[in-house]
Write a protein that binds this DNA or RNA. Structure first.
Length: 385
RNA sequence: GCAGGGAUUCCCGAGUGGCCAAAGGGGGCGGGCUGUAAACCCGCUGGCUCAGCCUUCGGAGGUUCGAAUCCUCCUCCCUGCACCA
């Protein structure tokens, strides 16, 4: 089962495959390889960028190998002791479990459930005593750990780094020991951690894993796609939103997105059509054909033609007459009334397509009408009966 | 331990007694334009019963007619020095 074409499929889009020739060696073992991917459960949603390593896992699975998803429950539970790091908030066990489950539901869109093993790292990390931890820490040196780009930058920026944070790469590396990983996947930002896994495995007398990294998907703002920044396309988000967000990417990014997300070359022809096709692909993968068609219809109707969507939620008018529109907008769209007032002042609010200029309107004049805030938010007003 | 520097609105960052709901940038939102939710241009961006009022500048007190700005204590962060069996 190890041929050159296998390797090129398995390592498609890969930035690093280390060591040189290591993957071929592993394939020659002639048994299903254990392909590890660590999961950060601090934020449960997977976006299409985080799905890229999962796509590699799927490729390995399709070739007969086993995917091992590691849920970093223990790592997360310990958190950052100062409790202040926004990157590593301490979560309670219930939330970790919930996040892990949410994560897995989404991951199954990409990976093969029959060939996936899910492990919680608390399983082995919780059992280590202090001597075990010291043994682990002896496998590396402070300067090696501080070499990591992330740490270097934070030191340069005068930001705090707690000692426990230095141990994260080691904990992650120990996961590889525990599951006897043959291959570990990750984004290029994980290169250091993945290589640390090799060092530690060797120190524990295991054959070190092969490291395979994939590029980080840049979003429409040319920054790394990230849920906390909000420039992400969630793997299970609403179809219409997935479609619209995909349409936001600049034309120059089409090539990278097609290669990484769809794993195909950009279709020839108009960039607009290539972008639409990419949006269809993304929605179809998550929600199926039907949803992809509906999402496109919605996009055409609302964004390209500036019309109202097909289905508009109803919103009950508050009591009283006349009705205070900022209050209605606040209730319908989750704005503050101050925001709503500004929106009206800027001509961003429409009733049945006509720009609203007054703050109050009669009950009768509002019932049954279509209220629009900006270009994409709509609500059908109904009188409470 | 000693000495210095710092904590400002969603983020970064100016502001050192009244002209401060607080410069500037980012982000977000709205409008215009457009093949696109891109790019570009313009505007807005604490809350409210909105020509007025209320709350905000790490926390708690205090000085003052008046405090983001001054004082005291506290919490946290950074840097240097000292310490380092």
């Amino acid at each position: 089962m190890s041929t050159v074409s296998d390797v090129s499929t398995l390592a498609r889009n890969a930035v690093h495959v280390l060591p040189e020739g290591g993957l071929v060696q592993k394939l020659k073992l002639g048994r299903p390889l254990r392909v590890k991917l660590g999961i950060d459960v601090t934020s449960p949603d997977i976006h299409i960028g985080r799905a890229i390593p999962l796509q590699r896992m799927r490729a390995f699975q399709d070739a007969g190998h086993v995917g091992v998803l590691i849920i970093g429950d223990y790592t997360t539970r310990i958190g950052d002791p100062s409790g202040r790091s926004s990157e590593r908030p301490i979560l309670d066990p219930a939330e970790i479990d919930r996040n892990a489950r949410t994560y897995l539901d989404q991951a199954l869109i990409i990976v093969d459930p029959d060939r996936t093993e899910v492990r919680y790292n608390g399983e082995w990390l919780a059992g280590l005593d202090f001597a075990d931890v010291l043994r682990l820490t002896r496998t590396t040196t402070v300067s090696q750990i501080l070499e990591r780009d992330d740490f270097e930058k934070r030191i340069a920026a005068g930001e705090p780094i707690s000692v426990s944070e230095l141990l994260y790469p080691l904990m992650q590396a120990y996961d590889s020991v525990a599951v006897e990983a043959d291959v570990e996947l990750g984004g290029t930002d994980q290169l250091y951690n993945l290589l640390a896994g090799r060092t530690v495995m060797e120190a524990y007398g295991l054959e070190p894993q092969v490291v395979l990294t994939t590029p980080l998907l840049l979003s429409w703002d040319r920054a790394k796609m990230s849920s906390s920044v909000g420039n992400n396309i969630p793997l299970t988000g609403p179809a219409e939103e997935q479609f619209g967000r995909t349409m936001r990417i600049p034309d120059e990014m089409l090539e990278q997105w097609w290669a990484l997300v769809a794993e195909r070359p950009v279709p020839r022809g108009e960039p607009m059509e290539a972008k639409l096709e990419l949006a269809r692909f993304i929605v179809r993968r998550s929600h199926g054909d039907e949803s992809a068609r509906a999402a496109e219809a919605h996009f055409t109707r609302v964004v390209r033609e500036g019309g109202a969507p097909e289905d508009v939620a109803e919103h009950r008018l508050p009591d009283g007459d006349p009705v205070h529109l900022p209050a209605v907008l606040a209730g319908a769209f989750g704005l503050s009334t101050s925001e709503a007032r500004r929106l009206i002042a800027q001509g961003g609010v429409k009733l049945d397509g006509a720009t609203v200029t007054e703050l109050d309107a009669s009950r009768e004049g509002l019932a049954g009408r279509l209220l629009q805030a900006g270009k994409r938010r709509f609500v059908r007003l109904v009188a409470s009966s």
